[in-house]
Design a protein around this nucleic acid. Sequence first.
DNA 1: GATGAATGAGGATTCATTCAT
DNA 2: AATGAATGAATCCTCATTCAT
Lengths: 206, 206, 206, 206
Amino acid sequence: MAPKVSQQHVEARRKQILDAAFACFAREGFHQTTMQEICREAGLSPGAVYSYFNSKEEIIEASCQESQRDLPLFEGTADKLDTLGVFMGLADLSFGRLAEAEAEIAIPVHVQLWSEALRNPRIKETLRLRGENMRKALEGLVVGAQQRGQINPALSAQAVVQVMIGMWHGLVLEKALDQNVDVSSYTDVVKALIGGAFWQTDGGEV
Amino acid sequence: MAPKVSQQHVEARRKQILDAAFACFAREGFHQTTMQEICREAGLSPGAVYSYFNSKEEIIEASCQESQRDLPLFEGTADKLDTLGVFMGLADLSFGRLAEAEAEIAIPVHVQLWSEALRNPRIKETLRLRGENMRKALEGLVVGAQQRGQINPALSAQAVVQVMIGMWHGLVLEKALDQNVDVSSYTDVVKALIGGAFWQTDGGEV
Amino acid sequence: MAPKVSQQHVEARRKQILDAAFACFAREGFHQTTMQEICREAGLSPGAVYSYFNSKEEIIEASCQESQRDLPLFEGTADKLDTLGVFMGLADLSFGRLAEAEAEIAIPVHVQLWSEALRNPRIKETLRLRGENMRKALEGLVVGAQQRGQINPALSAQAVVQVMIGMWHGLVLEKALDQNVDVSSYTDVVKALIGGAFWQTDGGEV
Amino acid sequence: MAPKVSQQHVEARRKQILDAAFACFAREGFHQTTMQEICREAGLSPGAVYSYFNSKEEIIEASCQESQRDLPLFEGTADKLDTLGVFMGLADLSFGRLAEAEAEIAIPVHVQLWSEALRNPRIKETLRLRGENMRKALEGLVVGAQQRGQINPALSAQAVVQVMIGMWHGLVLEKALDQNVDVSSYTDVVKALIGGAFWQTDGGEV
DNA sequence: GATGAATGAGGATTCATTCAT
DNA sequence: AATGAATGAATCCTCATTCAT
């Protein structure tokens, strides 16, 4: 099948360009990065790049969708009874990601996408969609836990999820601004908060 | 004294320019905003603007320091014994800020500064300094609480503070991307987490 | 009046740019002329040029309107009884124009505008409007002459005017392609045709 | 014989390309038409097109020669005695052409060639040659008529021909800019002018 | 012969910054 | 001190042309 080869080729080239763009974006930022730089990094001419993407804007938008492949791990966990255990696992897993090597590029790009989303509705939407699955899955967990009387039912499940994601974004940001942030300590605190071991139950006058 | 008047004049003009820049930045973003737009918004000529700031970069940097006047409120709280109460008050206060009208401009600018900080060491430093006082004050509170056995001493005080600020930043971001975020529900969850009322103590098999 | 000065300045600059553009267009054609060349010819920087015209396209369009100041001479001639005399005068006058020095630039630009008009509705419209006055005035003359029985009333007045303008355009074109065209001989023939002295009335077996 | 077949093949391909180019040129103009568009229209790859023409310029030039097959009709007419009748016939014939369907493509291309000729000596020459035969034939007719005392001998035969061609070009242009031009009315006027029936011989005070 | 991906010089346009008035 | 016209380097993008397959 002729188109198959072409299709693969197109995908390969697009990936090649996006990888190059990612590297540049992480290094220089979207707006400081010139197309020439992306071309150089990708080892392609401007003409070649422009036959796979119609504009720099489109490359930025594609960069946004790139980090899509996140957490299909939530599948089927909503009915788990050991909610706390699930949360702990998730915390370890997702926060652990930030310590991985590839995160060094993904994180700064991610932070910049927040800025872009403020002006570019397409990016905002992509970002929203990206989080939607995770949000939905978490909300299922929370609601289940509330029904089982595990989590305080007075709290808005949506807000609970927002806070969780907030803690995640907070760490992403802190890691972006300071590579040396101690992810595992941060994770410990998050787990302690969630698990209720933050305050000493037998402690002082709390 | 001539210089005195001039000094006031200079300050007034700088504020005029920064206010205009803020408005533009919030509306369009740093990089979409042209100097012409800032000039128009400020009602000044480019020449005039450039006699108060040496570059657009400098205006962005100054925008960063602008939001400085944050939290002198922590002063003298470090020794308070009712740590939990202090935290709760802080949460109400700082999160409440985000619901205020002026936040509508400050929030998007803030989010953009995160991006800028990735490339501009001066902004990164300013941002760091900005948080430093708060961080120090909070750390004092946490350490004190740990010494009094209120907060789990196994946790890194620094990490505890990071998580707290993380939750704050997470909300800032969420508010930036979605004006309709329910700040008070979010605050409730944060307070519940901190206060230990997140998980039902008498609840299920947690 | 401050704006007055500015207004004059703007007009002067626009003329300066249009003159430069004209020269370039006549020499190189619209599409072979680069903005850089126009800038060089005008002695201005690209930025300056772009503060008076929004695009190259706009300069081309303005070039089209430039040659507007054509023949207000028709005013009040429509009622003249000596129609033939009027036509002869017009022929001398308008064809004579083509022999003038400034026509050397105007003619090639004009020919190119015909091509542009095929793709650019704005130029087509401007070109149409440009001819409208002349056409109207001529049509008045023709109709008057037909009513007086001077011109064959079986002919479409509109078509008569079209043929007249056609002869004019034909000469413009021929002059564009060959500077050495003998305008006055051409004029003689046109006058002979119009005046009926083309065919020998006493001649052969015509 | 291989070369023979090849020869035919080459001609077929060239025609295929020129037809495609014509269609594009008529639709978009020389400079708005990209080679890609010509390739698409021709159903060929760029590489294929470039093996039949060395450049876009060459295709434009070839387009110019394409409309060559014009007026072999003049052959042997120069000695005809009924000059007026011949002219009338020519007018009907040539102007009639403009009403034909294929003229819809040929006319706009023709008008554009006038512009191209201003810059491209090869096109100018081709255009000149194209008209040369016709001019020569017409000039023969005119000179003959002058010798027989049919046409005013005081007129330059060359100029007479120029005016005739001018009227033709004028109509071509008018048709290019306005499809709805009434060709037959125009033709009537031209014939009336030539035939002397323009001005009423018994009319007013002319 | 044909393909079409790749090339890369070149062009239109922008915008931070300057400086004569 | 203020103006705002002018600057011009830098940027995004196009498209005629080539060449490995």
